[in-house]
Design a protein around this nucleic acid. Structure first.
Lengths: 171, 171
DNA sequence: ACCTGAACACCGTTCAAGT
DNA sequence: ACCTGAACACCGTTCAAGT
């Protein structure tokens, strides 16, 4: 494993255990048993580390979505549950511009694929679904909904507009 | 005007003109012709300033939404256009937890009111609409959509799920 | 009441130097 | 190839002191 990958491992650990404020070059170095300036031999700067974390987060999210239960509801559950399990990673994955030059091609597409599939290949519908899920998650993670709000019900209402019409069942 | 309000004026100006990195206590003080430590006689800390900016941003957004054109499309246009005109303020307004103790009661409700009205009073539907608009705006402001994507079309697709069914017109 | 100078405990980052 | 010590230009914040 490259030294850069070791740094990213530690960065993810710090982020999840202690939050973004603790993610300093000195903290990373201390955990690795070296001094902060030494990190610069393996990464360009702190932003390079965040781009690496973003890439890892997108890969993990993509895997989680690919294993989702069936239907739009299954996908939505997978999206929300991953974000709630990894709120700091979700933030790094979505709140900063995509580091398109630093992230391996295909990562973005892999994360998007299950959503595009759920949208039947309609790119606009896929973006709308993604935005809806992201908006719900982002506002929930930022504690913007009134305390005690029934967010399960909010998700059901939100998805209703996008469900395929129920297939007529023979009675 | 209180000294605190003057500080908030300057904070909003710095944020919109130079971005969040330039919003330092020293920069605020310099613009006011004083030294950074003097600010602490008028605000508790930097977070107090951000809470004040958040409150102002919500008030401005609420006013803009209240003056929106008719229908869901008019409201959506108003939401998106305000966010694009004031991206830094939009960020402060939505990306941080609501400073419920520091913000005048009613501000949150005023911002929500036009959305709740468009949802016909259905709180879950209102939250879903808000999340959809927020998600679209947040991803656009973070440059997460592919360059060149037709976001007008994405918005139309997104809102389609929530439009009231077209009233049958006599032919 | 309002402001200041000096200081503290931090940041990210550079660079010459060591092994 | 990898790491270090010292330093630089910043942060937010505290506090005794001045008017």
């Amino acid at each position: 494993m490259s030294r850069r990958d070791e740094i990213l491992d530690v960065a993810v650990a710090v982020l999840e255990e202690e939050g973004p404020d603790a993610l300093t070059m000195r903290e990373l170095a201390t955990r690795m048993g070296i001094r902060a300036p030494s990190l610069y031999k393996h990464v360009r700067d702190k932003d390079d580390i965040l781009a690496g974390v973003q890439e890892r987060a997108l890969i993990a999210l993509a895997q989680h979505l690919a294993a989702a239960g069936p239907g739009l509801a299954g996908l939505a559950d997978a999206y929300r549950s991953w974000a709630r399990a990894h709120p700091r990673l979700y933030e790094v994955a979505t709140r900063r511009p995509l580091a398109r030059e630093r992230i391996a091609p295909g990562v973005e597409a892999a994360a998007a694929a299950p959503i595009v599939a759920a949208a039947g290949g309609d790119a606009h519908l896929a973006r709308a679904l993604w935005a809806l899920a992201h908006g719900l998650v982002d506002l929930e993670l930022s504690d913007r909904f009134p305390p005690g709000a029934d967010l399960d019900a909010t998700w059901r209402t939100a998805l209703r507009g996008f469900e395929p019409p129920p297939s007529p069942t023979r009675s």
